[in-house]
């Protein structure tokens, strides 16, 4: 929908009824439940002086939590991009037994409550769990370490990459690859120079979506993280910790940092999705 069509359609008479009612309702509902409550975070923080604000958000324990939250989220999103692409590729390009079931279950992290995922992952990776039992004798500890945080974030991020890449991979024109092959390109060259550039915007969008979700994730992480100060505390947990000490202002200050990061990511995701749409010729 371009600007030009918007102006030409804005004719004096609207045929369909209900514009004022539905838009009015949308705006009131949105404001009351989302916008005004979110504004509360910024207004509450304004009661702090800049120095106080800085002291809260740059205390060593909080900074350690940023490093873990953002670092583990980046790494998890990167791992998901690689394996998410392989999984999407398998689902679109190959036939294999059980494919329909795999395709349906990819969305499990969207549907499974995070607390359930959290305790299940902890059970698997702790010392006597299915995986922990195998790897702990080799000196690798996953549960109750930053590695555990990474595992949980991989779990919740995977469908974002698969579901972003899959439709684009489906809509690629087969003829392009055939043309590339007929011009003498190897299968790898075709992938590298024809398919991959077409998938790149979707891969980056999937990366950004998985990263954004991982930064704010709470339920699936806190059980497996161990939550040791300076080592395995994620930033959302710092907000909870401050709240439990009735330090509302401190909790809110950290929330401001996280919200600003979310807004930047949301903006980046919007740009990336626009790019994906243009690249794949899909008009939104």
């Amino acid at each position: 929908m371009s600007v030009a069509s918007a102006t030409s359609v804005a004719s004096p008479r609207r045929v369909l009824p209900g514009f004022n009612l539905t838009l009015g309702y949308t705006l009131v509902y949105l404001s009351l439940l989302v916008l005004i409550p979110l504004a509360a975070v910024f207004i509450k923080t304004a009661s702090l002086s800049l120095d106080q604000f800085w002291a809260v958000i740059s205390s060593p324990r909080v900074v350690a939590s940023y490093k873990l939250s953002f670092g583990a989220s980046l790494l998890a999103a990167a791992i998901n991009v690689v394996f998410g692409l392989l999984l999407a590729w398998s689902l679109v390009r190959y036939r294999f037994p059980g494919k329909g079931l795999v395709d349906s279950l990819v969305d499990l992290p969207f549907a499974l409550p995070t607390a359930v995922a959290g305790i299940a992952l902890t059970a698997i990776y702790s010392a006597n769990g299915w995986v922990g039992r195998i790897i702990e004798p080799h000196g690798i500890k996953i549960a109750f370490t930053p590695l555990g945080v990474l595992v949980a974030l991989i779990f919740i991020g995977l469908p974002f990459v698969v579901r972003t890449v899959q439709p684009i991979l489906q809509d690629l024109e087969k003829e392009l690859e055939e043309a590339s092959a007929s011009l003498g390109a190897s299968r790898w060259q075709t992938f590298r120079f024809v398919v991959f550039p077409a998938l790149l915007p979707a891969l980056l969008t999937g990366f950004a979506l998985a990263f954004a979700r991982a930064v704010g994730e709470y339920g699936s992480v806190i059980f497996i993280a161990g939550n040791m100060p300076m080592v395995s505390e994620i930033t959302p947990l710092m907000i909870i910790t401050k709240l439990e000490q009735y330090d509302y202002v401190g909790a809110t200050a950290i929330a401001v940092v996280m919200l600003l990061a979310s807004f930047v990511l949301l903006f980046a995701i919007n740009m990336l999705q626009g790019w994906t749409a243009r690249r794949s010729g899909r008009d939104r």
Binding site: V34, L38, V41, M258, L259, S262
Partner: peptide, 20 residues
């Protein structure tokens, strides 16, 4: 703006109602 709640950490979603 309608999509906004998806990019806000669930912990912050709870916090905002505590603040109000």
């Amino acid at each position: 703006l309608i999509d906004l709640p998806f990019s806000v950490s669930p912990v912050i979603a709870g916090l905002i109602y505590v603040l109000i």
